[in-house]
Amino acid sequence: MGSRMRSSKAEAVTAVDGHTMIISLTGDIDHHSAKRLRGEIDSSLFTLRPKRAVMDMSEVEFMDSAGLGLILGRIACAEKIGCKLTLLSPSRQVMKILDLAGAGRLIEIKQK
């Protein structure tokens, strides 16, 4: 009763661990969801102004070039406030898109 079908609604949940802000992304990141995610991430980023931030990509189910735009945009925002941004555990599929744009040169990518 009442249990919903698993939806792929994208979410950005932020948490703080010492001087590091952790942004956990889930679901489908496309043009439809990217604008909202951008607002959510930036409001935490500019309020907390952390020294370091980690974008945890391990629960992302789908991402297209809009997600790439979201990541590149957040790299620029983090730079503005002197924050070092790291990408954590992108899937093979997400990695393929990052590689197409040579994003590995712009951001540190770590696996869990």
Binding site: A34, R38, D64, S65, A66, L68, G69, L70, L72, G73, I97, L100, A101
Partner: peptide, 18 residues
């Protein structure tokens, strides 16, 4: 690659490349 006509929308200009 990287070409986009949309500067406000945070487009990466990678759609066709994908």
């Amino acid at each position: 690659p990287l070409y986009t006509t949309d500067s406000e929308g945070e487009r990466s200009g990678m759609g066709f490349t994908v």
